[in-house]
Computed example of a mutant assay.
Amino acid sequence: MTELKRRPLPHDFHPPVPSFTVTSEDVKEGAVLRDAQVQSAGNTSPQLRWEGFPAGTKSFAVTCYDPDAPTGSGFWHWVLFDIPASVTELPAGAGSEGFEGLPEGAVHARNDYGSKDFGGAAPPPGDGPHRYVFTVYAVDQEKLGPDADASPAVVGFNLRFHAIGRAQLIGEYEHPKEG
């Protein structure tokens, strides 16, 4: 296993919580991301569906994180929270331009591109495969606390104390070295 694959995931530093199931028509565990989820191709947030979350869930949060980005701190591609507990699926594109299917009340925090939406995979050419960790958090309150101007770190801080369950799906993408 390469050094890239040993970098921790953000919730590795959070207390353990029960897991539940997240599936996607667009992202398959361990498989290469589709062009639709690549910034230069489709830049479209994937369809996600979840089930089996803990009783007491009052809202959900969804993130996409690349722990293998050459930044020293990874790269946040998507930070969405305050998804109502009645919502158990996001259609493809809910986090992308137009926000079709985005549940009322859901809040996008800024990602590391500096925008408040989903930003697709864009690893540097020749940097090897990167993991894209899509995580759905079951949250113990309807409103997590931060607003749309929060950084991913502030949202993560709040999730550390309010997540009561977590589900993840990891896809990969590599941009081959040019020339």
Rank of each mutant, 00 (worst) to 15 (best):
H14C: 08
P16R: 13
F20E: 02
T21I: 02
V22K: 06
S24H: 03
E25F: 12
V27T: 13
E29Q: 15
G30D: 07
A36S: 09
Q37H: 12
V38S: 03
S40L: 12
A41R: 13
N43I: 00
S45A: 06
P46C: 15
P46K: 14
Q47K: 15
L48K: 14
R49T: 15
W50Q: 00
G52T: 14
G52K: 10
P54A: 02
P54K: 10
T57S: 03
F60K: 07
F60T: 10
F60S: 08
V62Y: 02
T63H: 14
Y65A: 00
P67A: 05
D68Y: 00
D68P: 01
A69S: 02
P70F: 15
S73D: 13
G74W: 00
G74D: 06
W76R: 06
L80N: 03
F81V: 03
I83S: 01
P84E: 14
T88G: 09
E89A: 15
L90H: 03
G95V: 07
S96W: 02
E97H: 14
E104W: 11
E104F: 02
A106Y: 03
A109M: 02
A109F: 08
R110H: 08
N111E: 01
D112E: 07
D112L: 07
Y113A: 09
K116Q: 15
G119P: 13
A121G: 08
P123F: 00
P124I: 13
G128H: 06
F134R: 09
F134L: 11
Y137S: 00
V139R: 05
Q141K: 11
Q141C: 05
E142M: 11
E142Q: 13
E142N: 01
G145T: 10
P146C: 08
A148L: 03
D149L: 13
A153S: 15
V154R: 15
V154W: 04
V154G: 07
G156H: 04
L159T: 06
L159K: 05
R160M: 15
R160K: 14
R160C: 13
H162F: 06
